[in-house]
Design a binder for these strands. Structure first.
Lengths: 304, 304
DNA sequence: TTTATTTACGGCGCCCGTAATTATA
DNA sequence: TATAATTACGGGCGCCGTAAATAAA
C-alpha cells in the first residue's frame, strides 16, 4: 500500500467524486481510479460504489475510519519529526557528574535558555556509570562524565573531551599531614579516606592508583555528593582525593587545606567528557548547547 | 510512503540489523537499505544509526511508535475486511415493514441462523419511508419495504420484487357493510378509517386511491402496528384497508370479516421489495439471506 | 580481516498522463 | 446526450536483485 492511495481514497470518500478527488490531490483522474482499484485489489474487497456520487460500500465505510487514523498518524509523525529537525522539541535532558552540575553548568544554562526560551531543560546529577547507563537507555540526550578506560564506547556516540584537571587532597586544617606541602601515597595510606560510592569515576581512579602501588586503602566513608565531603573532612582526620573543580568551595575555607601529591607520582589528571549521539548533533538546540559547552570548557582549561 | 518501507523500518528496529530484517521481510539486504533511506529522505531526518547493531536515533525512537500504530491499523483493517469477505462479520441488520416482520421473516430467520450460527441478526419493524432512510444512512444492510412510485432509487441499490398481494378491507362482523360481498369506494367513504401513520406505504396507497376518485377520506385513527388495527376494528364501525398478509390473523376470527372491492375498481396490488446494495451481495451471509428470501417470496406468490 | 552497509548497474515492472471507450443518468 | 469512470497505450521513472565498493569493528 502506498500512502497516496490512501489519500486518494480519503479524497474520494470526502468529495464523493473521482475527478474532484483528482483535482484535490493534484493528479489526473485515471490516477485516482487506478489507485482506488489497487487499494481494492490489495484488500480484496470493493470500497466504493461507482455510480454518480461515489458512495462508500459497507467495506469502504469500515475502512474509512482505519484509513483516516493511518493518515493522521503519518501526518502527526511527519510534523513531529519536522519540528524536531527545526529545534522545536520541548525538552532536553542532561545527566552530569556533580562537579559539572555545581561549577560548570550553572553559568552556561542561563545562556542556553536565552537561545531557546521554550525549551525545558532537565539536569540530573549522577555518577559516571549511572549517567552512561541512562544515556544508553535513551533517557537523556547528553551526558558529561569522567573519562575512563572502562568506558564502553559505542560507534554512534560523539565523545568530546572538555578539559582535564589535577586530583588533589582535601583535609582539615589541623590534620597531621597539613604541614607537608606535598604528600606521598604512603602518607595517604596511613589515614582513613572519604570516597565516592561505586560507579563514580573518581572512586575508580583513586582505587586504581592505590592498587597499582600495592598500598592498603580502606574507604572509611562512602558519600555521593562532594558537598558532604567538606563537612565530614572538616571535623575528622579523614582525607579525600578530589578533582580541583570539586575543591573550589574549599579554597577560601580556613578550616580546610588542599595539598597535592609529588609531581612525579601524581595520579593522571581526570578527564571530563561530553557524550551524545551523532544524530543529536543535527538538532539545533543540541548544537547550540554543545557550542556553549565547548566555550565553557576552553575557559575552564585556562586554569589548568 | 509505501507500507513495505514501514515494515522494513520496524523489522530493523526490532532485529537491530539490516540483513536480519531483509531475511524477515523476504527481500535482499540492499532493498532494506534503500527503503530505510527513502523513509529518512521522506521524513527529512535520520532514523537509525548505521553502526554494528543498528540502533534508533531519537527521531527513530519517536517515529517507531507512530510506525507501529500505522502498521497495526493497516493489519487490523486488512484482517477486518478479509473476515468480512469470508462472511465472518458478526451482525446483520434488517429493517422491514410490519407484515414482513410478522409473517414473512419468522419462518425464514431460523433457517438463516442454521447457516450462520455466529451471526447476530437485528430486525427492526419500521414504516417504508423510515426503513429507506435508515438504509440510506447505512444503519441497516437490507430493507424489505412496500414498492412505491416515490421510492427514490439509487444506482448502487439492488431492488428485488418479492411478491405482490391484493389490498382488502377489514371490518367488524356486525358492521353495516359486512352483508355486502364486494364493496365500492363510495361505500367505504361513508365510514371512518383506521390508517397507518405518515411514512407508511399503505397509508400513501390508500390516500392516493381516494384522492384519485375525489372521495372524501378522513382518517379517524392513526396507528403504526397492524396488531392494533384488529383490536380497534373489532369494537367499532371503523374500516381498514390492509394487504392480505396483514389479514392472516383475522381470517379465523369470527368477530371480524374481510371483504374486497369490485375487481374493476380494485386498487393496485401492493408490491413488496427487498433492497440492499450491490456490494453486499458479495458477502456470503447476505447472499444466503437473499436466497432464503427469494424462496420464501416464491412460496408467498403461490397464494396470489 | 571480517562483517555490515552502501553504491553501481542492468532489467523488469509499475505508475503516470493523454486519449479513446464504456457505462451511467 | 452529457457526464463520469474505466481501459489502452507509450514513456519514464522507480524498485529489485546481483555484484562490487566502501565503511566500520
Amino acid at each position: 500500500m502506498r500512502l497516496d492511495q490512501l489519500q486518494s481514497f480519503l479524497a474520494v470518500a470526502e468529495t464523493g467524486s473521482f475527478q474532484a478527488a483528482a483535482q484535490r490531490c493534484g493528479v489526473s483522474q485515471p490516477t485516482i481510479s487506478r489507485q482506488i482499484q489497487a487499494l481494492e485489489d490489495n484488500l480484496g474487497i470493493q470500497l466504493l460504489h461507482r455510480s454518480s456520487r461515489a458512495k462508500l460500500t459497507v467495506a469502504g465505510d469500515l475502512f474509512l475510519r482505519r484509513a483516516y487514523r493511518i493518515w493522521q498518524e503519518w501526518q502527526a509523525a511527519s510534523a513531529e519529526l519536522k519540528a524536531m529537525q527545526h529545534g522545536q522539541q520541548h525538552e532536553l535532558c542532561i545527566a552530569a557528574i556533580h562537579s559539572i552540575c555545581r561549577h560548570f553548568l550553572p553559568t552556561l544554562l542561563p545562556r542556553f535558555h536565552q537561545s531557546f526560551p521554550q525549551m525545558q531543560l532537565r539536569v540530573t546529577a549522577l555518577g559516571s556509570d549511572r549517567a552512561v547507563k541512562v544515556f544508553q537507555d535513551g533517557l537523556v540526550d547528553l551526558i558529561i562524565v569522567m573519562g575512563d578506560r572502562y568506558l564502553f564506547k559505542q560507534s554512534e556516540w560523539v565523545i568530546e573531551p572538555l578539559y582535564s584537571e589535577p586530583v588533589q587532597i582535601l583535609m582539615a586544617a589541623q590534620h597531621p599531614l597539613a604541614c607537608h606541602p606535598t604528600l606521598t601515597w604512603e602518607a595517604l595510606a596511613q589515614y582513613p579516606h572519604v570516597v565516592f560510592k561505586d560507579g563514580y569515576g573518581m572512586r575508580r581512579l583513586v582505587a586504581e592508583e592505590f592498587a597499582r602501588r600495592n598500598l592498603p586503602w580502606q574507604p572509611a566513608l562512602e558519600l555521593n555528593t562532594p558537598d558532604a565531603f567538606i563537612a565530614v573532612i572538616r571535623e575528622s582526620d579523614m582525607l579525600a582525593l578530589l578533582p580541583r573543580s570539586a575543591l573550589k568551595d574549599a579554597l577560601d575555607d580556613d578550616t580546610l587545606v588542599i595539598r597535592h601529591l609529588d609531581a612525579k607520582v601524581a595520579p593522571p589528571d581526570r578527564q571530563v567528557l561530553a557524550i551524545t549521539t551523532r544524530d543529536r548533533l543535527n538538532l539545533p538546540p543540541m548544537a547550540q548547547l554543545l557550542t556553549l559547552i565547548r566555550q565553557q570548557a576552553s575557559h575552564e582549561s585556562c586554569f589548568s
